[in-house]
């Protein structure tokens, strides 16, 4: 039976089915913690643990799915071009907001983790926690962290931003929909952007763009900021 689970088709099939199932559940019960990706991941992990299947065996098929992260990042460039026209009138303020917000995101997480005496490889895995998963994974591969930890935390950050972001911002006195959208995209990437679209179409567009811009800023700066705080890479 173990050999059966080593067939790549097993990993491919369970990933697709789990994701489709997660989306159906989300449609039925519109509740934020029922995030389709989170549900799919929890389902697959449970399945592997129950049937005693190694992650490596699952990933023989899983890697055919995750391969598409590469072209998807390129596709984000096309998405960015399409939406770019819509923010032109506020471009300078928008870029300032994403840059300052994005850099604060990298710096604060590094500093807090250092103060809490967390091992370096975890800091390297979490420095890019605000940006979209495929970009965050690439950053972690470059800096010597563990991409799987990055993926898990990035998804958690997205769900946190999606669930509580607008509530926190409104409590802190933010009224502008554009401000809420940009903040969600900068801090909580695509999962936050999904929530921004629920606030308004305009908030969603700004959020999607903020996600792309912060992806680029974080990709460019994280290796250097980590080097600054941690010294050479392990």
């Amino acid at each position: 039976m173990q050999e059966f689970f080593q067939l790549p088709v097993f990993g491919v099939f369970i990933s697709i089915i789990a994701f489709a199932g997660g989306r159906e559940l989300r449609k039925k019960f519109n509740y934020v913690l029922l995030n389709p990706v989170l549900l799919a991941i929890l389902f697959i992990i449970s399945f592997l643990l129950i049937f005693n299947i190694d992650f490596e065996d699952y990933n023989r098929g899983g890697k055919f799915i995750s391969f598409f992260l590469g072209p998807s990042v390129v596709a984000l460039g096309v998405f960015f071009y399409e939406k770019y026209e819509e923010v032109k009138q506020n471009l300078k303020v928008f870029l300032l907001s994403v840059a300052v917000g994005g850099i604060s995101g990298i710096l604060t997480v590094i500093i807090f983790l250092l103060l809490l005496k967390v091992p370096d490889f975890i800091i390297e895995s979490l420095a890019s926690k605000s940006v979209t998963t495929p970009i965050a994974i690439e950053i972690t591969k470059l800096t010597g962290g563990i991409p799987e930890i990055t993926a898990g935390i990035v998804i958690a950050v997205g769900i946190f931003g999606n669930a509580f972001g607008p509530f926190i911002l409104k409590k802190l006195g933010i009224k502008s929909k554009i401000a809420i959208g940009t903040a969600l995209g900068t801090a909580a990437h695509g999962i936050g952007t999904a929530r921004a679209f629920e606030e308004s179409k305009l908030a969603g567009v700004y959020s999607g763009l903020a996600m792309c811009v912060n992806g680029i800023i974080t990709a460019l700066l994280t290796p250097y900021l980590l080097q600054l705080f941690l010294g050479s890479f392990t």
């Binding site: 604060t108 809490l116 926690k129 946190f160 900068t186 801090a187």
Partner: peptide, 22 residues
């Protein structure tokens, strides 16, 4: 420590980028 650092950092990031636009 991971939860504390990540949540605090995310809230700060949200607020800083929102307040600049606001």
């Amino acid at each position: 420590p991971i939860s504390v650092a990540v949540i605090a950092s995310t809230v700060i990031t949200l607020y800083i980028s929102a307040i600049i636009i606001e």
